[in-house]
Each structure stands twice: as C-alpha cells, then as structure tokens.
C-alpha cells in the first residue's frame, strides 16, 4: 500500500488540473464535483417516478456543501451518485471532469449509523477499509490510524470494543475510519442524526476542526437546518420527491464558527430563508 503522508495533497490534483485546462470550455474554473442535469429513477420502466431530477451543482475543491430537504427527497441518492455506488439514469456526475462510472475509492463515507464492526476493536475498525481493500495492513498504516485517533481524542479507546463506546464516540470512530484512506471527498449521510442534541453540536465543531486542519471536499447531508448553516459554506435546499434544487445558498458566516454564531442575525436569517423554502407551497410542486 502506498503510504501517503497523513494529509498531503494527493497527486491526482495536478492531473485533474491539467484536465481542467484542457477541457475548460464553459466549465466553471476549479469545479471539483460537478452534477449536470442529474436525475435518477429507481424504477426501470420508462415512465417510472423520478427520485431526483434536474440537479445542477458544482462543488469546489475543499468546499463544505450541505444538502437539506424533507425526508425522501433524494438527498442520499445524490450522495451515492458522487460515491459511484449509483450511476444516474439521467445526466452526469463528474469528478475532475471525469464522469463517475464506478465506485470511487478516493471518497470516504460516513453513514447515519456508525456501522462499526462489533467484532473489531476501535483501532481495527479504523484500519478496516485498508484491511478490506488490500487484505493486510502495514505498520505505517497502524501508525497513521494511531495519529488519527490521537487527533480526534480517541487514543485511549483504541483497544476498546465498539459497544463499550457511547453513540457519539462511535460516530467519531466512524469519521476517523472514513478519513483513513485520506480521501479528497468526504461524503456524510446524516452522520449526526442518531445523536442527542448536545453531542451533536460538539461533534459538529470537532468536524469543523478536522476539516480546517485537513481540508476536504465535503458533501454533508442533513435534515437539520441549523446544523447545515453552522457547518457549511453553501447549502443546497431540495424539494420533496422528486427532489429538485430549490435554492443554493451562500452561508457567508465567518470561520472559525462557534456556538455564539447561532445567535447572530445572519444565522437566523439563513435558517428562516431555508425553512421558508421547505415549507412554502411552491416546494410542493
């Protein structure tokens, strides 16, 4: 296994940059993940209902984009398309201007539930993606796992079993596991929704710290409006099924953000706007 320096910029970026210039055409510069008129229908019949449709979105490198919308609006569908786990039936998803046609391994995924393997210790859970992908882990990999655990304050739990940890701790391990392969894209599917409110806020700030120190392109799915505003650079607001883009909002709150920001006028305006989008009649079209 090629051991990357923990958080170095992957070399793939340069390649992509060249690609970018070569095929520049009408593309926005620096667009990293791009969705062009993306739609998906799970039903193979020609007139099957669309889960999502007409999604156009450019995500920039190391940008934090949150997706909010009512349940069942196809947020997770979007995430799976970026991961390459799902190929859209309409339109195209591309990363570095290359269409996504198969599962990508430069993405890290954090799920709603921690989904740790109950038979492995915390450290082995963190190392699991490597073990699973390559069949073995090297000493360097173990060192890297230790670094990540230390960074997230989990070092003392390394040899514990998942069921000895609280829900919040388990989800932290889930995030560390997603970071192990040093992915450039971090996909998070309602990662904190199973946690209690206090833990949820704390782990959100922890995530921002990690993201600040080790920038990644983040696609963060949530049904919490305030969470989206607190964390994201931009927020994609989706309508209910079939999911379409209702609005794309620039958050423009200064970083680093703290709990105090939640009392600011800007914060309240934003949450109001989003709430308006979701509850206004036009969203039911």
């Amino acid at each position: 296994m090629n051991v990357m320096n923990a958080f170095s910029t992957p070399s793939i970026e340069n390649v992509a940059h060249n690609d970018d210039q070569a095929t520049q055409k009408e593309t926005t510069p620096n667009a990293y993940v791009r969705m062009e008129d993306v739609g998906h229908c799970y039903d193979p019949t020609p007139d099957g209902p669309m889960a999502v449709q007409h999604i156009n979105l450019d995500i920039y490198r190391h940008e934090f984009v949150a997706v909010v919308g009512p349940s069942g609006c196809g947020k997770s569908t979007l995430l799976r398309m970026v991961a390459g786990l799902l190929i859209p039936s309409h339109g195209e998803v591309s990363v570095f201007n290359k269409p996504v046609t198969e599962p990508r391994d430069d993405v890290g995924i954090v799920f709603q539930k921690p989904n740790l393997l109950p038979w492995l210790t915390v450290k082995k859970n963190v190392l699991f993606p490597l073990k699973h992908k390559y069949g073995h882990v090297s000493l360097e990999d173990k060192k890297r796992a230790d670094e990540l655990l230390t960074m997230t304050g989990l070092a003392s739990f390394a040899d514990k079993m998942p069921d000895e940890l609280s829900g919040g701790m388990q989800q932290r391990v889930g995030i560390v596991r997603a970071l192990l392969l040093n992915p450039d894209i971090l996909l998070m599917d309602e990662p904190f929704s199973a946690l209690d409110a206090l833990t949820r806020e704390q782990i959100g700030f922890d995530l921002l710290d990690i993201w600040r120190d080790h920038p990644k392109t983040v696609l963060f799915i949530t049904h919490s409006i305030s969470e989206a505003v607190l964390l994201a650079d931009r927020i994609l607001v989706m309508s209910k099924r079939p999911g379409t883009v209702l609005d794309l909002i620039d958050v423009n709150l200064p970083r680093p953000r703290t709990a105090k920001d939640m009392n600011s006028t800007r914060f309240c305006e934003l949450t109001e706007t989003i709430r308006g989008h979701i509850y206004e009649p036009h969203s039911r079209a």
Binding site: L85, I109, K113, N115, L117, F128, P129, K131, G135
Partner: peptide, 29 residues
C-alpha cells in the same frame, strides 16, 4: 448485514470474497 457496510465495501472496490468473509459472515455469527 447493514446495507451501508456493503456500500462501504463496494466503494472500496474490495474483492467480493472479502465482503463475504470480513463483513457478511461475521455479521451472521
């Protein structure tokens, strides 16, 4: 076995037998 773990395995493009031996079988224990 949670579908999400299967997706994790797919996203890693791990060989199918490892999905069986490292995820599905232990989950079935």
């Amino acid at each position: 076995t949670p579908q999400e773990l299967i997706e994790l395995s797919q996203s890693l493009r791990a060989p199918r037998y490892r999905e069986t031996w490292q995820i599905r079988i232990p989950y079935a224990i």
